[in-house]
Amino acid sequence: MNIEFKREENRLTAAVKGRIDTNSAPDAETQITEQLDGVDSLVLDFSEVDYISSAGLRVLLVLHKQMAPRGGMKLIHVNETVHEVLDITGFLDILDVEEEG
């Protein structure tokens, strides 16, 4: 997994590539959290994410809790599998997920 960041003013876009699983999730959390200073809008581009496991969900929840008071977090380009996981776990109800296509 790796992440590409794009900063536009106070808006941060993080494009994640690969799997967000038990091994990569802590790394993803650290990398993204480090970039959050002064960010009031976080966009996670999941177009290149293969799948996400519960460890990744935990990261999403942590980030969501951090960003909620500031201006929110948004997931874009979520694939079918990730969407299903979010759906099953009720994360679709919590997170702002942009529907694909």
Binding site: S54, L61, K65, V85, I88, T89, I94, L95
Partner: peptide
Amino acid sequence: DVSLPAEEREIGGLGIFLVRKM
């Protein structure tokens, strides 16, 4: 409970839940 608001969510147990579902 997957219907709780985010603030009350616990992450533990989600993994097994996911597996069970999929």
